[in-house]
Design a protein around this nucleic acid. Structure first.
Lengths: 198, 198
DNA sequence: GACCATCTGGGTCGTCCGTCCCACTTTTGT
DNA sequence: ACAAAAGTGGGACGGACGACCCAGATGGTC
């Protein structure tokens, strides 16, 4: 095996762990499976991490950061508020369709973190960030379209997150593309209805 | 240990498994932990079930059935459509608040079933039933309040399920009661907006 | 009261897990 | 150039797991 400094090895192991989890669930994230995915020896694992729990903490943090980056940059919001919202939802849906296993892994990791006492704070931070991110995006969308939200932005943001979570789960279960498309249609309608667009 | 016929023993083991999963997640559902919870010996397990996988299948089925019974019987829908919808959502939220670990277990089991090839059909059936149940409840709610849905009932039902899933996840993460209350307010508004109430 | 299917408890097997250890090789600093 | 530091590999450990087996206890049936 090539010689790799510890920090890079940690990153490689974290990403390998994410792939393993996407493929086989959190339960499959054994040290042996992860080092095999990363093409390392078992000893290298405990050279980079003191324990598997320490790795899992970094896995959760890394996934959260990745999710943020993937959803945030809205490309070209054009048209009215409803269309901007719809475009954002559709963008997420495409992301979900592109690699469903990864998104399922994110869900499983959230529930896993919720169960693990020393990771609960990470799960809360994750959702705090989601809500803040959604609120920010909603404000920008309103600004670009000259709209004004009639309800507290935090409430609209929470609704948006709840809708995307529900969308994710339902699509992961039945993979019904048409139903998902109609769901985001309706979601965009509902959200846009809470702003006045002069 | 008392003498118990196999069918009852199976049921007892399934319910013990649900409690174990609620307490420690799907990963904790080992045969030893389950028989300990049920107060049985390890051999009794493999007398009632041929394998742990067979038990898990019954666990998923049992949880789904329980979820159905818990949500279905709407007590007293009084007032307009919005109020009826709001009451239903609040009922579910109270259920969630009463035992969050169980609801988290349901979520984990859904993702677990989605991952296990021989349980995927169960997960799909689970959500089909949820959607059918929601549609039925929405039709009844409209009838009682003399309302008419302006959108296909299947779409409204899917939105309702997505919203409750999102509500569940967000509340499980941050346990923010006030935010959950406001979320169901907004959800009831959004759904009621898709019916004409003369 | 005897019989046979139905249960039960305890022990055992092979496997996989996380972690650790130690001899070895490679890089780095001087 | 050489010593110290950093990184690597293989193997071994104790523990928990699912599954299985079998001798014996139990309870309904004739």
């Amino acid at each position: 095996m090539a010689r790799i400094p510890a920090p890079e090895r940690r990153a490689a192991l974290v990403q390998a762990a994410v792939r393993v989890i996407a493929r086989g669930g959190v339960a499959a994230a054994t040290t042996r499976a992860i080092v095999a995915e990363a093409g390392m020896s078992l000893a290298s694992f405990h050279y980079a991490f003191t324990s598997q729990a320490e790795l899992m903490r970094e896995v959760v943090a890394w996934v959260v950061a990745g999710e943020q980056l993937a959803v945030l940059p809205e490309d070209i919001p054009e048209g009215g508020l409803r269309e901007v919202l719809h475009a954002g939802l559709q963008r997420y849906l495409e992301l979900l369709r592109e690699n469903p296993t990864r998104e399922q892994a994110v869900n499983e990791l959230a529930l896993y973190a919720l169960r693990t006492p020393e990771l609960q704070d990470l799960a809360r931070e994750q959702y705090d960030r989601y809500h803040a991110l959604a609120a920010e995006a909603l404000v920008v969308a309103a600004q670009r379209t000259g709209s004004i939200w009639n309800r507290p932005i935090t409430e609209v943001a929470r609704m948006l997150i709840a809708l995307t979570d529900g969308l994710t789960l339902s699509w992961l279960v039945d993979r019904d593309d048409a139903a998902a498309d109609r769901l985001i249609d309706n979601a965009a309608d509902a959200l846009a209805g809470w702003a006045t667009t002069p």
